[in-house]
């Protein structure tokens, strides 16, 4: 089978001041097939976000390759056509939608701009497609005329998802995309993502620290620590019977009735 996304032997080094090298990602490989949902789980410094940013083309890998349908993508190859092609393969949604939305632009205008950049030149067609997208993410029409600051956190995250969907990508990278939302709103967005995955035949690369969220949205999970993969497998298998002690420790740290937190010396 042709994998939709393949990441092979990703390595990312950062040069620190003073000449030291920080290896954020050591030899990490994974793949996502069409319509699949892979979660990358880990704490801060695990390298999960760096992996996502490499796949999205936001950062070059020090070594390793990223392939879509077995075609190699080189982030350094910055031609507009190549960038557009990549945009239709993969879109990314961030934790804080504020940073990815232009505060001066209405929702409709910002989505319309994306559509125009991808060759939809007819104004009426763009308006129709924007209205369709609003509906898809469960936003009322009037939200389209609003600016980001007039929206609630949940609405802004729906707008970010809508913008990502505008170019009909096949893979959506969600980087802690529901982490900053209030619990009651987070549940709505998780349900929306599940629905969109089915209706749009999307694949997900879901970056999260929250094992509850991961259980709901992913089929497979990869647990990372200090830039390395410590465990991977089907989400149910890994969360029901983790084989790595670190995964077990993550599960044990989840507050629940009768939980007795243990302090570790540092």
């Amino acid at each position: 089978m042709v994998e939709q996304l393949t990441a092979r032997h990703l390595r990312k080094e950062y040069r620190l001041r003073g000449g030291e090298t920080l290896v954020a990602v050591h030899d990490v490989s994974f793949s996502v097939s069409a319509g699949d949902s892979l979660a990358i789980v880990g704490e801060s410094g695990s390298g999960k976000t760096t992996c996502a940013r490499i796949v999205a083309g936001l950062e070059p890998a020090t070594s390793g390759t990223v392939l879509f349908d077995e075609q190699e993508v080189d982030a350094a190859q910055a031609r507009v056509s190549a960038r557009r092609w990549r945009a239709r393969q993969v879109q990314m949604v961030f934790q804080d939608p504020y940073s990815s939305l232009d505060p001066r632009q209405s929702v409709n205008d910002s989505v319309s701009e994306v559509l125009a950049a991808h060759g939809l030149h007819d104004r009426r067609e763009r308006a129709a497609r924007t209205a369709d997208l609003l509906d898809k993410v469960g936003l009322p029409e009037r939200v389209g005329r609003s600016k980001p600051k007039q929206l609630s956190g949940g609405q802004r995250q729906r707008v970010a998802i809508m913008k990502a969907l505008a170019v009909k990508p096949r893979l959506l990278i969600l980087d802690e995309a529901v982490s900053a939302l209030d619990v009651s709103v987070q549940a709505q967005v998780i349900n929306l993502l599940s629905d969109l995955r089915a209706s749009e035949k999307l694949a997900f690369l879901f970056i999260s620290h929250d094992l509850g969220v991961v259980r709901q949205v992913s089929d497979r999970v990869m647990v990372m620590r200090h830039g390395r993969v410590v465990e991977e497998g089907s989400t149910d298998a890994v969360l029901d019977a983790p084989s790595d002690p670190y995964t077990q420790r993550l599960l044990d740290a989840i507050p629940r009735p009768g939980w007795k937190p243990v302090a570790r010396a540092v």
Binding site: G153, V185, A187, N191, D210, Q216
Partner: peptide, 19 residues
Amino acid sequence: ESRPSTTRRQRLRAIPGRP
């Protein structure tokens, strides 16, 4: 009920609207 369970997968019963 809004909190996704770590032990089982099921559609969340979300509270409509926002706080």
